[in-house]
């Protein structure tokens, strides 16, 4: 899943693209036409048991899963980047050590525990899952945004000040664009974690692809487990890969690669 260098032979450059395309087609088929895979999964399904998960449409589960992840990650990105900006301004400096320790401590909280702890507070359903995804997603983004904003080359900042840009302009036109690749890496981490945690969200009655896996675990139906696992796994891998590509492209444009 890595991109070959630009001067690599044609075959090396085409291979990742072909692999990516194949995985996308496989994922689309798994979600849109699961019936096609009946012969593949049949040998591992219990004898006489259902092979393909039909209790709800895989498409609607996927959309609900991705929707949860997108909503939570968008909220964590906005809040985390805002907090990182505040803490890296002179006025917020007193909160910097505290925010560092909160990030350090917070990241030791297992995502499952965050999800489980959100249930007593919010009841079952989408609520605790969203909150757990949001809270847990904050940390990697905040940490990376802090790193990105505090490790900018000083001569660039000096130059920006020298050209007479105001604080606000410096933030929007210089600091944030330069920190963007690092911030994006944080968003990628938190997206992957959120995708996985949302799967577990089905144990607290959120509608996600975890439903398929859990149904398989409860009825010892390996076919369900593999079906759900493959779809979530492919979503995660493709999302991760897409984010890496975006980061690379941005980093190249910022001359930070």
């Amino acid at each position: 899943m890595t991109t070959a260098p630009r001067n690599a032979p044609m075959a090396l450059r085409v291979a990742p693209m072909a692999l990516r395309l194949a995985l996308i087609i496989l994922l689309a088929a798994l979600v849109l036409a699961p019936g096609l895979f009946e012969p593949v999964f049949a040998p591992i399904a219990p004898v006489g048991g259902p092979v393909i998960y039909t209790r709800s449409s895989l498409l609607s589960l996927s959309l609900s899963h991705l929707g949860l992840v997108a909503a939570a990650s968008l909220a964590s990105t906005i809040v985390a980047v805002t907090l990182a900006i505040l803490v890296t301004r002179p006025a917020g400096e007193a909160f910097r050590p505290l925010s560092r320790s909160i990030t350090n401590i917070g990241q030791t909280f297992p995502p499952v525990a965050v999800l489980a702890l959100a249930v007593p507070a919010l009841g079952f359903g989408v609520g605790p899952t969203l909150v757990a995804l949001f809270l847990y997603g904050l940390l990697p983004i905040f940490e990376n945004a802090m790193t990105g904003l505090t490790t900018l080359p000083p001569q660039v900042l000096e130059a920006a000040r020298g050209t007479g840009l105001s604080r606000r302009q410096r933030l929007w036109q210089v600091e944030l664009p330069l920190a963007a690749p690092v911030i994006l890496a944080g968003i990628r981490l938190s997206l992957v974690i959120a995708l996985g945690t949302a799967t577990i969200g089905s144990t607290v009655a959120a509608r996600t692809l975890g439903e398929v896996i859990i149904a398989g675990l409860l009825t010892s139906n390996t076919a369900f487990v593999l079906q759900g696992g493959l779809i979530v796994g492919l979503f995660a891998a493709l999302l991760y890969d897409a984010m890496v590509q975006i980061e690379r492209r941005l980093a190249r444009r910022m001359g930070r690669s």
């Binding site: 577990i200 896996i213 398989g216 759900g228 696992g229 979530v232 796994g233 891998a237």
Partner: peptide, 9 residues
């Protein structure tokens, strides 16, 4: 990147 529940499953 494989979600944990999927991996365990």
């Amino acid at each position: 990147t494989i979600p944990s529940l999927a991996m365990f499953g």
